[in-house]
Design a protein around this nucleic acid. Structure first.
Lengths: 207, 207
DNA sequence: AAAATAAATGAACATTCATTCTTTTATATT
DNA sequence: AATATAAAAGAATGAATGTTCATTTATTTT
């Protein structure tokens, strides 16, 4: 093969993106329904209406499929979380926006969210995180640091800040998604409840 | 078989509890290391030095093994969390005790904790929770209700209270266990950091 | 010592698994 | 229309899976 044939090689038969999307969505559904065990390439191929061999055109192997899915869903979540966000916002406005964005995304994409919650607590997560850890980190630390300088936020170790600022939200959403009430009645999400919780978080974080 | 032989049947060859314990510990190790996929009955039998058939004396099937393990570890965690606790405690003392107990247990039993975190976000959890949800719920709601009456705690939906009171702790511990720092340096747990976080949680929850 | 019985075993089962091989199909350039 | 080429398919691979069967082992009562 010479340079000419390499660079100008004919690009024949494009990958069917529709098919690829169906594979992804089916995989997400199955992983959430069946768990990581219970899920298999053959089942996926069958349910997605695709040959098993086709999956290996899209992905190197099963692990790659799962990890890629994790990376992609993570990026979607992050993008959605940051929608409308700018570092110039006041701390309170920024946090409020992120809570709203996260809640909306999770409640409207419950399959993706459940999948992500699952992979987040699995051995796969190491490989998922390795990819997009940094871009996210940079934005978030900058936001927090500015808020500290402006006297809007207590000076705290980053992990402490993060745990106080977002863990309650995640937990609240998980209650909703799993119907996993501890109290008497099944818990029902509302924007009011979210705001009530956010106010208390802000109370904790303000200097 | 008549009544006599049923009631007074000879009890021959007791189950080897030592063997059962090794199976459990090995299973925990493998589940954490390999994830729910990656784990198999044959691998477990081999590593635990036991015949595959023996596993089916202890457990109905693979799912039963995993679920039973989840139930047992959950009970251990709960028992440990409640050690030294009494409903007569002040809200602040009670919360402080539970944070301390939880942190100690998680950090000293990291395999169990990682396993539990994993099963908690898997489809198995429904079956785990079904068992010991109630006994736990009763204690915790009573504690919170009393605190509200005494004016030590804001009146809140239970899930909001729970998410504020404990989610930050779980998140902080997860940072430590996964070495999953978002900020620059890897996060290192300390009792001081825990207390700092707890103070802010109390600030949020007090009326 | 014999009988009784559950624990424990090793080998075996059909099934499913992840993956690959060979062939066919569809598309874009020549 | 012929050619080139990657996408996609279907069938097949050996290995691994969950589970069971027939048998042996260990222990206690008779």
């Amino acid at each position: 093969m010479n340079i000419h044939s390499f660079i100008f090689a004919a690009q024949m038969r494009i990958r069917d993106e529709h098919k690829e999307i169906i594979v992804k969505e089916t995989a997400l559904d199955m992983l959430v329904e069946l768990g990581f065990d219970g899920f298999s390439m053959q089942k996926l191929a069958k349910k997605a209406g695709v040959s098993p061999a086709t999956l290996y055109i899209y992905y190197k192997d099963k692990e790659d499929l799962i990890v890629q899915l994790g990376i992609e869903e993570g990026q979607k979540m992050t993008r959605s979380t940051m929608e409308g966000f700018s570092p110039e916002m006041s701390f309170e406005d920024g946090l409020r926006l992120q809570w709203k964005n996260r809640a909306n995304y999770w409640l409207q994409n419950s399959v993706s969210s459940k999948f992500y919650e699952q992979i987040k607590h699995s051995p796969y997560y190491e490989k998922v995180m390795a990819v997009y850890k940094d871009e996210f980190k940079v934005k978030m630390t900058a936001f927090a640091k500015k808020a500290v300088l402006n006297g809007e936020l207590k000076r705290l170790p980053f992990e402490v800040y993060w745990s106080l600022a977002f863990a309650p939200l995640y937990n609240l959403i998980n209650f909703q998604m799993q119907g996993q009430s501890i109290g008497g009645l099944p818990f029902t999400w509302s924007e009011e409840i979210m705001n009530q919780t956010l106010e208390l978080v802000l109370k904790a974080l303000k200097p």
